[in-house]
């Protein structure tokens, strides 16, 4: 009896610190954020209970919340799709032992060891409209030194499109599209390694059998590789969704801490409302909705990909 009590105490004593820390630094702030979202508070004076007014304001006061949400969706649709497709493609190539696979793996993974702030600054320089801007320099070279670049887009059913150079990639108006290549460059390596690790667990005999049956490389990918890495792929998609919804650093850095309506994503809107405009209630309402979105999208992704696990 005494031994059991001691054993329970032993377990509780090891669980308690984690429980206390989680309660103090995660659970309580979450509940507080929910309460703040129902209050009008500037962070200094007494909070005033306003019920769900902040949530109504999100949709009624201006279109900034919906614009920010649309920007997050653009990141998911364009960014996450590109990252998933490219990382799967390169992982499959490396898995099939292309020449120099080790070097490619390190090269692709390299952006992951750089902080997101440094990556953003690097891309600001790449996109710069000054003489330092590598991309604009290249476009200028393509245009033969002229101040306009003519893009023949007849094949898209459009006439020639003329672009003034240097092109202001990081102008607030274009920023959300300009961060997509940066996102892809920075994140592909991580997902490549994740998917590659899953692919390397697939027994080689499956591929040998497929080759004997005359399956092409593409068929092998779709009928062997993809189904057998589905669980890891789902985890990767959940990570990507969460990452796209919580996207913050690059916009904050590229907009020099002053994102505008043209460039806001949900996380920057939240931060600006709370810490620059001292509208804690409104900012918390954004945070609550962001949490709901992350939670729902994760749930849906997991639900959609739920099938019986394949054992091999």
């Amino acid at each position: 009896m005494k031994r059991n009590r001691e054993r329970s105490l032993f377990i509780v004593s090891f669980l308690a610190p984690a429980f206390i820390l989680f309660t103090a630094f995660v659970a309580v702030p979450c509940v507080r954020a929910l309460l703040y979202s129902l209050e009008k508070w500037d962070g200094f004076s007494e909070p005033k209970w306003v019920g769900y007014e902040n949530f109504v304001l999100l949709f009624n006061e201006s279109d900034i919340f919906l614009i920010a949400l649309r920007h997050n969706l653009i990141l998911i649709v364009a960014g996450a799709t590109c990252i998933t497709a490219l990382s799967l493609f390169f992982a499959a190539l490396l898995h099939r032992r292309v020449h120099g696979a080790g070097l490619f793996r390190v090269t692709f993974f390299f952006p992951n060891v750089i902080s997101s702030v440094a990556i953003s600054l690097l891309w600001v320089l790449l996109y710069s409209t000054t003489d330092f801007g590598v991309i604009n320099g290249f476009l200028k070279w393509l245009a033969g030194g002229a101040s306009q670049l003519r893009l023949p887009l007849q094949w898209l059913g459009r006439g020639d499109v003329t672009v003034d150079l240097p092109y202001p990639f990081v102008d607030s108006k274009h920023l959300i599209y300009a961060v997509i290549p940066m996102m892809v460059w920075a994140a592909t390596g991580f997902y490549l390694v994740l998917f590659l690790a899953a692919m390397e667990n697939i027994p080689e005999t499956f591929y040998e059998a497929a080759v004997l049956d005359g399956a092409s490389g593409v068929a092998q990918f779709f009928y062997i590789t993809l189904p057998l890495i589905r669980e890891v792929l789902t985890v990767g998609l959940v990570f990507l969704l969460i990452g796209c919804l919580k996207f913050f650093d690059p916009i904050w850095i590229m907009e020099n801490q002053f994102p505008s309506k043209d460039s806001h994503v949900l996380a920057t809107l939240l931060y600006q409302k709370v810490f620059s405009e001292y509208n804690v209630g409104y900012g918390s309402a954004v945070a609550v909705l962001l949490f709901v979105l992350v939670f729902l999208s994760t749930l849906i992704t997991l639900r959609l990909s739920r099938r019986e696990a394949l054992e091999y």
């Binding site: 710069s128 409209t129 000054t130 003489d131 240097p166 990081v170 102008d171 020099n256």
Partner: peptide, 20 residues
Amino acid sequence: QRGALAMTHTESQLQFVNDQ
């Protein structure tokens, strides 16, 4: 200046002090 709307304060001011 072309591209000015995408320049930070230091970038644009650098253009000025470098006679661009």
